[in-house]
């Protein structure tokens, strides 16, 4: 069975909030040139390396944006085939920061999150969860359910984990039917936060980001609306990412599209609808640009990631998370390149 993969989505999301009809390579090149300190000379020297850097954001204590770029001699079709096989990525190809990556079937069932293994710390967090004071991001109904569960040794860990996994399945099922209205309102802290609001905040985190691919962003916000023209794969997946502090579960909605635009040859967007730590919202975009689009020879894949935190992060923790996510973006760019090469070997 083919195992190309998916990470495109997970991996490659370029946060291009781009501008209307003319979105494309020009806006990306501008983003690289004006907002990150990635220069054309950096690209010219890039070779087979990857490069990821932070973009300036309005409030550094609450937001983070990363842009990454890699040169890859691939085709949009190879990227698409890799993305369509997200559930088949060999473990050996996954970077260390990606502990798990699983497709969510439609409809989801009780086995969907079976591979989700909670750490002892997370099990303890579930067990001790209280309204407005929980070490995992949860809605009030789940906090109440967990609080009411009997604490029986030695089965408590599995009981709490099973309840959590079941709630995730219910949330995903409801999201497929009702979109953002079904997403959770986090009540782990005194300031309640709706996951859809967190996503919106993440999208707006770049101070002067161009409005990229508006039809894609609109679709993800208005889901279940009809998909935009040229949409190819529309799916959900979950992953566990390790940024160097706490492994973080994310549940995501991904869309890949073959735009009717020669500048932008392939694009995928990821909307994180749930993260159990750190993120109030997360939006990622990945794009394969036309040849020489960035003003230097070659074809480049650009990945943009926007994150909004669920509260203010102190400088120390933000530094840890930021470094971890920059490294993660670089890892995912490497993975995208490897998967694309695997899906359609050069020559």
């Amino acid at each position: 069975m083919n195992k190309h993969v998916p990470c495109l989505f997970v991996v490659a999301l370029v946060t291009l909030q781009m501008s209307a009809a003319a979105y494309g390579a020009g806006e990306l090149a501008n983003l690289l040139r004006t907002e990150s300190d990635i220069k054309q000379s950096d690209l010219a020297r890039l070779g087979n390396a990857v490069l990821a850097k932070e973009l300036p954001v309005a409030d550094r204590s609450r937001n983070l944006a990363i842009i990454g770029v890699v040169r890859m001699e691939t085709t949009p079709r190879a990227l698409h085939l890799a993305a369509a096989n997200i559930d088949d990525i060999p473990q050996a190809l996954l970077p260390a920061s990606v502990r798990n990556l699983s497709l969510i079937p439609d409809p989801p069932d009780e086995t969907t999150f079976a591979r989700l293994k909670l750490t002892k710390t997370q099990q303890k967090a579930l067990r001790s969860c209280k309204l407005d004071k929980c070490r995992m991001k949860l809605p009030v109904h789940l906090i109440n359910t967990l609080t009411a569960l009997p604490y029986r040794w030695p089965d408590h860990a599995e009981t709490f984990s099973r309840t959590y996994r079941s709630a995730l399945v219910d949330m995903v099922s409801s999201y497929r039917e009702r979109g953002d209205d079904a997403l959770w309102v986090y009540r782990d802290k005194a300031d309640a936060l709706h996951a859809a609001t967190g996503y919106q905040t993440a999208l707006q985190s770049i101070s002067s980001a161009p409005q990229l691919v508006p039809e894609v962003i609109r679709y993800l916000q208005e889901y279940p609306a009809p998909p935009p023209e040229g949409a190819l794969a529309d799916f959900m997946f979950w992953s566990v990412l390790d940024f160097g502090h706490r492994p973080t579960l994310t549940v995501n909605h991904a869309l890949s599209i073959r735009p009717d635009n020669p500048q932008l040859q392939y694009l995928f967007a990821i909307k994180t609808i749930y993260a159990n730590h750190y993120f109030g919202g997360r939006a990622s975009f990945g794009a394969l640009l036309e040849e020489d689009a960035l003003g230097v020879p070659g074809r480049y894949f650009v990945l943009v990631e926007h994150l909004s935190f669920d509260g203010k992060l102190n400088r120390l923790l933000r530094g840890v998370v930021s470094r971890g996510i920059v490294a993660d973006v670089e890892n995912r760019l490497e993975l995208v390149r490897a998967l694309a090469a695997r899906a359609a070997p050069p020559g």
Partner: peptide, 11 residues
Amino acid sequence: WFAQGQIDMHS
């Protein structure tokens, strides 16, 4: 591409 993707994802 859509059809191919659906076949791959539901293999």
